[in-house]
Design a protein around this nucleic acid. Structure first.
Lengths: 341, 341
DNA sequence: ATGAAAGCGCTAACAA
DNA sequence: TTGTTAGCGCTTTCAT
C-alpha cells in the first residue's frame, strides 16, 4: 500500500509525532529535523491520509460550497468568485455537488463530520421541508439563492437571495410600461411551486395591478419531458405557443436560457425580435449579451449574493446571529423589447 | 459531539459490530435486530463518520470524476451523463473539482487514499509533465479530453479525446471548400501550446495543403487579461481585428464561446453573418444552435467520449490494459458560413 | 525538541 | 447470529 507516516518516521529514524510536526509546520520542531523529514517526505512522495487526519482533528478551516444543480450555468459561474472571497477571508474552499437524488442536508451533515467543516454555503436547489432538519446541522450555514415554496420566506433562516416574486413583477411591469398588454409567460413546469411559482405569481400581480385581465392561455408551463429551464424547453413550448396562434406582443421567459430557446422558435416561425415579438428574460446570465438582439432581462446581483453569503457565514462562524438578506435584481434593457405603438 | 456507532450500540443494547452490520446491510444479521437498530439510527439521526469508515475500509466502489475547469460549460454539461453511465456500471459517483492552483495528480492521490477510490476519470485540463507522476497513482484512471502540449500524443496513456489538430484542420478545410481564402483564426493565448496550439497547428496545415499563403496578421491570440475561451475574449479580439481593417471573409474561432463574442463584435461593427463574414466555431456546445444565425462548428462527440471513458476505466479496473482512443468530431453545418461567390 | 502512547469512529477478523 | 477486539493513519497530550 501507500507510504504512511510510520514509514517516514522509520526511514528518518524519528518518532511519528516528529513527522507529524514537520508536515504540519509545528513551531516547536527543530528546523533541521523538519527539513530532513520533509526531504524524505518529498522523496517518497508521501501524502498524509486525509481520512485519518480528519478523524483525529477537532476542526479544520474549511468552508464547503454545496451546489444543487451543478450543471446550471448560473451557479457554475459563481464558483470562482466564491472561492476567491472565502480564501480572502482565510478559509479553505471545498466545492461539493449534491445530485438530484440526494438530500442536501444529509450530505451536509456527512460532509461536516468528514471534513470537520467550519461552515457551509448551500447554493441553489429547493429546501422547503428541511427547516427542522437544518437545525440538526451543528455548523454555521447560509442558504444562497435557495428556492422556497410558496409565499413564505422563512425570514428567520440565514438566506441570501433576491425576491423572485417582486423582481418578476418588476419585469412584467417593465413590459407593461412599454405598452404591452398581451404578455405570454413561460414559467416552470406544473409542479414548480418554488422559483417558477414565485415568478409566475409576480406575473399575475403585475397584470392585476395594471388592470389587465388574466388570460390563462398566455401562461405556458415548461415540459416535464425536457430538462427544466433549458433552451430546448423554451424552444419546444414557444414553438407550440406560436403554432396555437394565440395572440401576444411580448413573451416573458422566467429564465434567460428559456429565452434563448424562444428566440430560435420565434425566428424559425418567421418573426422578428423585437419588431414582431418582444422577449424578456430573467437571471442575467452573461450569454444574454451575445444573443441577437441582446436579451433584456432582470439581472440577479451575483456579486452581491456571493459577498453577502460569505460575509454572513463569517459572522455566523464568529457567533453572531444573522437572518435574511434580500437583494434587488437590476433591470437590464438591451434590445429585445420594443415599445408598442 | 455527534452520535457515534457506540452510542447506538449502547442504546440498542447490542455490540458495535451488530450496528455496523445493520447499517451496511450485512446478510448475516437477524432481520429483527437490524430493524430495531435501524429504528434507533433513524431516531437519533445517526450518520456514520465517513472518515472512520474510509480509514478502515480496504476499498470502496467509488469512481471519481476529477474536473479541471469546473466553470467550463463544455465539461459541466457532461456531468449528468458521466454519473449515469458510471452508476449503470455499478459504481458510486463522486464529482471533484480541481482548482487552478492545484496539481490534478496530487489531488487524485489524496482523494484515492481518502475515498479508497476504485478508479478516476480526469476531465479537462492540461497534463503535460505528469507522466511519471501519473504512474505513482496506483489506481486505474482515464484521461478524458485532457490537453497535451505540442504534437506528442502519449499514445501509451489511457486517453479519450478527439485529435484537436486533425479536427481543426477539417474545420478550416471546410471553410476553404466554401471558397474562403482569407481566413482569420482566433486561437488560445500566446502561451497556450495545448488545445490552442494544436488547433492552430491544424489551421496552418489546412492552409498549407491548400497552397494558401499564411498571413500572420490573420492569426489572433486571445487576451491574457480576459478569461480564456470566453465570449468576452472573443468579443475583444474580434473588435480589434475589425478595427484593424485586416481583410478576411471567414473567421474561425477555436471555441464556440469565443465565436459568440465574435458574433457580437461583428454585428456591432455593422456587418452581417454570414453575408459579410462567415464564422466557424469549435466544440459544438448546445447553445450554438440558438445563436442567430446558428453557429457552424465541429462537434465534439461528447457521448462517445463519455461512454468510451467509462468503458475504458471499467476495463482497466478489471485488469485489462488499454491505451488511447481518438474519436472524430462531426462537422455541423448551420447557417454561419456561406459559400464564396 | 522529541518520543511513546492514547484514541478519533469505524470495519472485519475471530470467537462464542 | 452476535459480541469482542485489533487495528486503519493520523494528531495530540504527556513525559522525557
Amino acid at each position: 500500500m501507500a507510504v504512511t507516516i510510520k514509514d517516514i518516521a522509520r526511514i528518518c529514524g524519528v518518532g511519528v509525532s516528529t513527522v507529524s510536526r514537520a508536515i504540519n509546520n509545528d513551531p516547536t520542531i527543530n528546523v533541521k529535523t523538519r527539513d530532513r523529514v520533509l526531504k524524505v517526505v518529498k522523496e517518497y512522495n508521501y501524502i498524509p491520509n486525509n481520512s485519518a487526519r480528519n478523524l483525529k482533528m477537532i476542526e479544520s478551516n474549511t468552508v464547503a460550497l454545496l451546489v444543487m444543480g451543478i450543471e446550471n450555468i448560473f451557479f457554475t459561474s459563481m464558483f470562482g468568485s466564491f472561492q476567491e472571497q472565502l480564501e480572502k477571508n482565510g478559509y479553505d474552499f471545498l466545492l461539493h455537488a449534491v445530485s438530484e437524488n440526494q438530500d442536501a442536508v444529509d450530505v451536509a451533515v456527512e460532509l461536516t463530520m468528514e471534513k470537520r467543516l467550519k461552515g457551509i454555503i448551500f447554493l441553489g436547489g429547493q429546501m422547503d421541508h428541511c427547516k427542522e432538519k437544518l437545525e440538526k446541522l451543528n455548523v454555521p450555514y447560509v442558504l444562497c439563492t435557495v428556492a422556497r415554496e410558496g409565499e413564505k420566506f422563512h425570514a428567520d433562516l440565514p438566506t441570501v437571495s433576491i425576491d423572485d416574486k417582486v423582481e418578476s413583477q418588476r419585469a412584467v411591469e417593465y413590459l407593461i410600461s412599454k405598452g404591452h398588454k398581451r404578455i405570454a409567460v413561460i414559467t416552470g413546469n406544473k409542479n414548480d411551486f418554488a422559483v417558477g411559482g414565485r415568478r409566475l405569481s409576480g406575473y399575475r400581480h403585475a397584470l392585476e395591478d395594471a388592470n389587465i385581465p388574466l388570460d390563462e392561455s398566455l401562461i405556458i408551463h415548461q415540459k416535464d419531458e425536457i430538462p427544466g429551464y433549458s433552451p430546448a424547453n423554451g424552444y419546444a413550448v414557444t414553438k407550440e405557443l406560436l403554432a396555437s396562434h394565440t395572440e401576444f406582443t411580448a413573451l416573458y421567459c422566467t429564465s434567460d436560457l428559456v429565452a434563448f430557446g424562444a428566440y430560435k422558435a420565434i425566428y424559425k416561425a418567421g418573426f422578428k425580435i423585437p419588431e414582431d415579438i418582444s422577449v424578456m428574460g430573467f437571471d442575467g446570465i452573461s450569454l444574454g449579451e451575445y444573443m441577437e438582439p441582446g436579451l433584456s432581462t432582470m439581472v440577479q446581483p451575483k456579486q452581491d449574493l456571493i459577498t453577502a453569503s460569505v460575509k454572513k457565514l463569517v459572522k455566523r462562524i464568529s457567533g453572531e446571529d444573522v437572518t435574511q438578506d434580500i437583494y434587488e435584481a437590476k433591470l437590464l434593457e438591451r434590445a429585445s423589447v420594443r415599445p408598442l405603438r
